[in-house]
């Protein structure tokens, strides 16, 4: 098993599949009355959050607690972090406290890589800047597999602000590792350079959402921040929504079996219409539930053994 989960690129197909299989067992166990499992008794998991993200933090917290780990939440607000303590000094503190794993959310790309150099425990990337969010990609893959039965050969469209999206980067890496065909879709200003060369040769680029939808098994809508308008990535929210938003007429272009995903939080009416978000094809609520199982699997596989 790997020691850290810093990037979806840390996972080969076998390891990624093991995580998804383990998550399935964890999901089954989560259905019962006594949800707690003893596997990580006596282990300490630190949630080190430099960005507010209640949903991701509580998902990791629930996962660690269900495995009986001790959880310490170290958030940027109300701690020495906000007094300007460096990441390295914080790392040395966590090290002294005997953290077996540090789950880190940080606004700087690569912060988990730096942290892994300063602590002995495992480092789990819970989102770093505009780089990656590998557990989100795992839960997305898990959701696709449970809805559609497979990942190999699946056609996935990832739509929106790919340039700034850590969810998109991790998903492209993980899904292509697991045999899916990914198309990133958005205005050219929001598609990063050399995306296929940088991430995976199984990646295609399109600027035309309507052309991609009929050949997609999954369409994943990314959150688009309206502030991008100020930087001229697109002219207006209205134009963005018209060209790249998923509304009912567009959803009808999808094949019958296709599903609609969103990592949340959504801008209803911007990248996704409310009636699409609430339709039976949407997996948005499921994604949240699957998040706990996937994170349990990750923590167990990183910390459960020697």
């Amino acid at each position: 098993m790997i020691k850290h989960l810093r990037s979806a690129a840390d996972l080969d197909a076998a390891t990624a599949t093991l995580i998804l299989d383990t998550a399935a067992e964890m999901a089954a166990l989560s259905g019962r009355e006594v949800k707690k499992l003893p596997a990580l008794r006596g282990r300490t998991v630190v949630n080190l959050f430099y960005e507010d993200s209640t949903r991701t933090r509580i998902s990791f917290e629930a996962a660690a607690k269900r495995l009986s780990a001790d959880v310490i939440n170290f958030s940027a607000k109300g701690s020495s972090v906000s007094k300007g303590e460096s990441l390295k000094d914080t790392a040395l503190t966590l090290q002294a406290m005997g953290a077996d794993a540090v789950v880190i959310r940080h606004s700087a790309s690569g912060a988990p890589h730096r942290l892994a150099g300063w602590v002995d425990g495992s480092v789990v990337n819970a989102g770093d800047g505009t780089h990656e969010h590998p557990t989100q990609a795992l839960l997305d893959a898990y959701t696709m597999r449970s809805r559609l039965g497979r990942l190999d050969g699946l056609r996935v469209a990832i739509v929106g602000d790919v340039l700034h999206s850590r969810v998109a980067r991790s998903n492209v890496l993980l899904l292509t590792t697991l045999g899916a065909q990914v198309t990133v879709v958005g205005p050219p200003t929001l598609i990063p350079l050399d995306v296929a060369a940088a991430l995976s040769s199984r990646t295609r680029v399109s600027y035309d959402l309507d052309a991609v939808l009929p050949d997609s098994d999954v369409v994943m809508m990314l959150r688009v921040q309206t502030e991008r308008m100020q930087d001229s990535y697109f002219p207006s929210a209205r134009e963005y929504s018209r060209r790249y938003g998923l509304d009912m007429p567009r959803m009808k272009k999808l094949p019958e079996h296709a599903i609609v995903m969103h990592p949340g939080p959504m801008n209803r009416g911007m990248e996704i219409a409310p009636e699409v978000a609430d339709s039976p094809r949407s997996t948005i609520v499921e994604q949240v539930a699957n998040g706990v199982s996937v994170r349990m699997a990750v923590l167990y596989l990183l910390l459960g053994g020697k």
Binding site: S109, G129, T130, H131, R166, R169, L193, D194, V195, A198
Partner: peptide, 16 residues
């Protein structure tokens, strides 16, 4: 900007 804009900056999620 953080590093040369190209394949590697895309992979690392650093502003080019």
């Amino acid at each position: 900007a953080q590093m040369h804009e190209g394949e590697v900056s895309t992979r690392l999620g650093l502003t080019g």
